[in-house]
């Protein structure tokens, strides 16, 4: 059966750590890092491999810093 896998890339220097992407993810992929970026924000990062590439996180990110990839595997 074809399965869909996804992955996200977060521009951590532009992320403002707002956390709006976290409740938007149905797979609980995203969490805020304990580390901070150059501006002092605890940036968002993926914490598991469950991404399906649904784009929800990218669509609600106010700063447009999430890029999404999706691939069908047989």
């Amino acid at each position: 059966m074809a399965k869909v896998v996804g992955d996200i890339v977060i521009d951590i220097e532009k992320c403002k750590g707002c956390g709006v992407c976290i409740p938007a993810c149905p797979q609980d992929v995203i969490s805020l890092s304990k580390n901070v970026n150059g501006k002092g924000y605890n940036y968002a990062e993926p914490v598991n491999d469950d991404c399906t590439g649904c784009m929800n996180c990218a669509i609600v990110c106010p700063d447009g810093v999430i890029t999404v990839y999706r691939k069908k595997i047989e």
Binding site: D7, G53, M55, V68, Y69, R70, K71
Partner: peptide, 9 residues
């Protein structure tokens, strides 16, 4: 997964 052809957003 992170290949240009798989880019969706």
């Amino acid at each position: 997964i992170r290949k240009p052809e798989n880019l969706v957003y």
